[in-house]
Simulated assay, not measured.
Amino acid sequence: MHAIAIYDLDKTITHAPTWTAFLIASARAQKPWRLALLPLAGVATLGYALKLVDRARLKQITQRLLLGNGWQDARVARAVADFADGVIADGIYTGARAAIAADRAAGRRIVLATASYAFYAGAIAERLGFDDVIGTCVVRDNGKVRARIEGENCYGAAKLRMIEAWLAGEGIARDDATVRFYTDHVSDAPTLEWADEAFAVNAHGPLRLLAKLKGWTILDFER
Rank of each mutant, 00 (worst) to 15 (best):
M1A: 13
H2Y: 10
H2I: 01
T12Q: 04
I13G: 02
T18D: 04
A21C: 00
S26Q: 05
A27N: 05
R28M: 05
P32A: 12
P32D: 08
P32G: 11
W33R: 14
L37H: 03
L38Y: 02
G42W: 09
L50D: 01
D54E: 11
A56Y: 01
R57V: 14
Q60T: 12
R64Y: 07
N69I: 00
G70L: 00
R75V: 02
A81M: 02
D82M: 10
Y93M: 04
T94H: 06
G95P: 06
G95E: 10
A96R: 03
A101W: 01
D103G: 04
R104P: 02
G107D: 07
R109L: 12
A115S: 15
Y117W: 13
A118V: 11
A123P: 06
I124D: 10
E126R: 14
G129N: 07
G129M: 13
F130K: 05
I134L: 07
G135V: 06
T136A: 07
C137P: 00
V138Y: 00
G143E: 09
N153F: 13
A158W: 01
R161E: 13
M162G: 03
I163H: 07
W166G: 08
L167K: 12
E170M: 15
D175V: 08
A177K: 12
A177C: 13
R180E: 14
R180L: 03
T191D: 04
E197H: 14
A198K: 06
A203L: 11
P206C: 11
L207P: 10
L207S: 11
L207K: 11
A211Q: 10
K214T: 03
G215V: 09
T217R: 15
D220E: 13
E222T: 15
R223P: 00
